[in-house]
């Protein structure tokens, strides 16, 4: 029997175990069985990948960018969720607050998620900078409720929204997934509205070191991409993981984060 590929994942929610058990069951029926190892944060996971105790790591965009930096671009991205290729950051405020653009945040209070959340902290600062606003131009509050998980739990984003509801901030920058989770402002008209949505960027991706031979990686990717939303056995796993199809990664989608990380002097290690 082929030795299973060992995949690392961060335990950001209790559903991570059923997701990976489902994935392991699926791959047990393929030519490329897998096993998984859970980490409490992305720093540990990337260390394990680089040191060779993992074949693959299921990384967020920040974990991918940091792995690239630590490996001199030797690592490879193998696959992402369809939803990872079209990720955006949404700036939201209380309905009727009158924000029309990033420029209108000048002098106002913006709340950000955990400092290592790409979608709710690092990229928002980058987008402000691109709009001509430096950190001093906007009154920034950071909510570090889930550092290490790169915004995966979204808890810091929920806390940011609470700050807006409680009038401790005028606006919040959150990931599109959190915006969707609260119903995109349609659930309760009069609570939140979005006033700016970022260009699309890439989010999570399976990351491999060059030591993983192409002969092992390629059939595994082919089996992954073969998971089918219409197949009742595959569907619950895909639903829990938040995708309809696994797809090849879109590397250009990481350019904005690479730039943001370098502008903000974010280190390659944790």
């Amino acid at each position: 029997m082929t030795a299973p590929l060992v995949i690392g994942s961060v335990a950001y929610s209790p559903n991570v175990v059923p997701i990976w058990e489902g994935m392991r069951d699926y791959f047990a029926g393929t030519s490329t069985p897998i096993d998984f190892v859970m980490y409490s944060n992305y720093g540990r996971q990337v260390d394990a990948l680089i040191s060779g105790s993992l074949d693959l790591a299921w990384n967020t965009n920040l974990a991918w960018v940091r792995t690239v930096a630590q490996t001199d671009s030797a690592c490879r991205a193998l696959a992402s969720r369809d939803t990872d290729l079209i990720f955006t950051t949404v700036f939201v405020a209380r309905s009727g607050s009158g924000f029309t653009s990033l420029e209108s945040l000048r002098g106002r209070r913006l709340v950000l998620g955990s400092r290592d959340s790409a979608q709710a902290a690092i990229l928002p600062v980058h987008f402000l900078r691109e709009a001509g606003l430096s950190e001093g131009d906007v009154n920034l509050t950071r909510i570090d409720s889930d550092v290490g998980k790169h915004g995966d739990t979204g808890r810091s984003e929920l806390d940011a929204l609470r700050a807006v509801l409680d009038d401790r901030a005028d606006a919040a920058a959150i990931g599109i997934n959190t915006w969707q989770a609260i119903g995109r402002g349609e659930l309760l008209p009069g609570a939140f509205e979005s006033f700016w949505t970022s260009p699309e960027y890439s989010h999570c991706t399976f990351t491999a070191m060059p030591s993983l031979e192409v002969e092992r990686a390629d059939p595994w990717v082919a089996n992954l991409l073969a998971m089918d939303w219409e197949n009742p056995q595959h569907r619950p796993i895909l639903e829990m993981e938040g995708l309809q199809a696994w797809v090849p990664p879109r590397l250009e989608g990481y350019a904005s984060l690479v730039k943001a990380v370098s502008e903000q002097g974010i280190t390659a290690r944790w």
């Binding site: 309905s95 929920l158 929204l161 509801l165 609260i182 119903g183 008209p189 009069g190 609570a191 939140f192």
Partner: peptide
């Protein structure tokens, strides 16, 4: 107003 505070329960 009532709307935003009701929204808190969704969070």
């Amino acid at each position: 107003s009532a709307a935003p505070s009701a929204m808190g329960v969704v969070l």
